[in-house]
Design a protein around this nucleic acid. Sequence first.
DNA 1: GTAAATGTGGGGAAAAGTGGTGAATTTTCC
DNA 2: GGAAAATTCACCACTTTTCCCCACATTTAC
Lengths: 147, 147
Amino acid sequence: MFIGEYRHTLDDKGRIAIPAKLRYSKIGEEEYWVATKGFDHCLFVYPKNEWNVIVKKLNERLTLTRKEDRSFLRMFVSPANEQTVDKQGRIVISQSLREYARVKRDVVILGAINRIEIWSEENWNKYREENEKSFDSLGEKIADLGL
Amino acid sequence: MFIGEYRHTLDDKGRIAIPAKLRYSKIGEEEYWVATKGFDHCLFVYPKNEWNVIVKKLNERLTLTRKEDRSFLRMFVSPANEQTVDKQGRIVISQSLREYARVKRDVVILGAINRIEIWSEENWNKYREENEKSFDSLGEKIADLGL
DNA sequence: GTAAATGTGGGGAAAAGTGGTGAATTTTCC
DNA sequence: GGAAAATTCACCACTTTTCCCCACATTTAC
């Protein structure tokens, strides 16, 4: 399971190191990772097997003939990128993904149970500020989680 | 599985390179590809075997007597043409397809699971802008896929 | 305090993408 | 039917990008 918040840097070649704690978590020891556009202008990064579960579900439910389905496919699946980790534990973030998430150099990486999220530092700070304020009330709005 | 977003160029002869990641993906190593008109004014490009699957389905489900079926067949199957890749990994996009998708020089190529899509840059930017806005809410509609 | 692991930067070889030339084939026109 | 024009096709060449190493600084673990 992926948890934790990490500050890393993206180098000139678009490479970013996956935090060791995430890289070597059980769920994360895969041959490759898949990065794609996520909600709220961050990137979602899945280990191979988790990604495959999602695509399988999507394939069952999405149809070629429905407009919304095509849109979701193009927004979520098409931008995805398979990446093997290099010897230093890094993956490459493609240019279109970097643009989408507006990441330049300083990056925040979040563990999010079955995926990793990559945020530009600016976006993350803004998001965090906004949501910390309403954290308590937020708890009441979301579904009954049985906590 | 085809995934990824790529920016390529179409040359004066109508040739376009299939991104290497797509060309060499398992599903993509075929003798030839089939390009045809797709939804939303882009082009759909299938590897041989995937195209055959589509045609088989159409054959089973479309009837000669229904007006809409005939129309769909003529819009989707008739404009299709087979293309072998040259030594540089390119295929030729026929003029009528180029006109349909309004592609001139700058082109965006999308991996879309079992097909590839070719967009003119302008069309893609417009489509993306319109659909990115509703991406977050769209995700909710598609609902709990465990993303 | 020392050794190992982690994160960051960079260089060189290989692959990918693009543009172009000349031969072969097809089309057009008389 | 045959010659000229146009188009297509199969290579070749160049530029850019990507990939695979190696090196080093910093942090973590023992």
